[in-house]
Design a binder for these strands. Structure first.
Lengths: 119, 119
DNA sequence: AAATAAAATCAAAAATTTTTGATTTAACGG
DNA sequence: CCGTTAAATCAAAAATTTTTGATTTTATTT
């Protein structure tokens, strides 16, 4: 059992509070930027912003994309935590994860990828 | 020759100033996010931030990557306008395009992908 | 219980991106 | 002019991502 809390973490560039190693930080952002690195997914995000909650079948019509393809892209956005899912019965409703988008993107991208009330 | 400037652009959702169509906006950001969607390139950006100007051979040692591979990744960042190149003799010096990064990313990503003096 | 409907999953094919090692280009110094 | 060095380019191989159509899962309705 530890007797006292060390004041400095010598293993990590002498910062008192342990930061995750750069490597895993890069992994995290790689995943998020990969999710954003696709026109179709940017379009989906943009649509979700305007609707504030949509099910797959609604989106499927808006964006003219087969259901399985849409589910595939939604999963990538979901796994990157850029959107959230709420299931009601047989429907899945998706919404933009505004907090996450705010952490990631500049205010200038507001109009495209954040809910419509913001600008 | 135009007699007067139209007050509204009826072809584009009645906004007076013509915006690029969403499609081409998505294309633009797809390219930038694709450039960011890779651990190695995030690492390169992070290194460039700290150095404020480095040639390929210096980077190649810092990141332990063969020269042709590094050139490939630098080109992707360059084409996305996230970095800039200045050639002196046989050397190419690369720097982060801070303005572009600022337009794209949140202030929270400052420490990782902007020059070191900012936080 | 059977029929229907929404959405997720799966496996194979197609498309795209990345890696690799060799070659080329361009600039410099003797 | 020749040798050297930095960096870009190239083509083929390898790896990863996306598309497609079929199937499965889950919940609802009759």
């Amino acid at each position: 059992m530890e007797k006292f809390i060390p004041l400095t973490d010598l293993t990590n560039n002498s910062k008192a509070i342990k930061e995750p190693p750069l490597q895993s930080t890069f992994e995290k952002y790689e995943k998020k930027f990969k999710a954003l690195a696709d026109q179709k997914r940017l379009h989906i995000l943009n649509l979700l912003c305007q609707q504030d909650s949509s099910c797959v079948c609604d989106l499927s019509e808006l964006i003219d994309m087969p259901q399985s393809k849409l589910s595939y892209h939604l999963k990538i956005l979901l796994d990157a935590n850029l959107i959230q899912k709420e299931t009601k019965g047989t429907w899945s409703y998706y919404t933009v994860n505004t907090e996450e988008i705010n952490h990631l993107l500049s205010p200038e991208l507001c109009c495209l990828f954040r809910p419509s009330n913001c600008c």
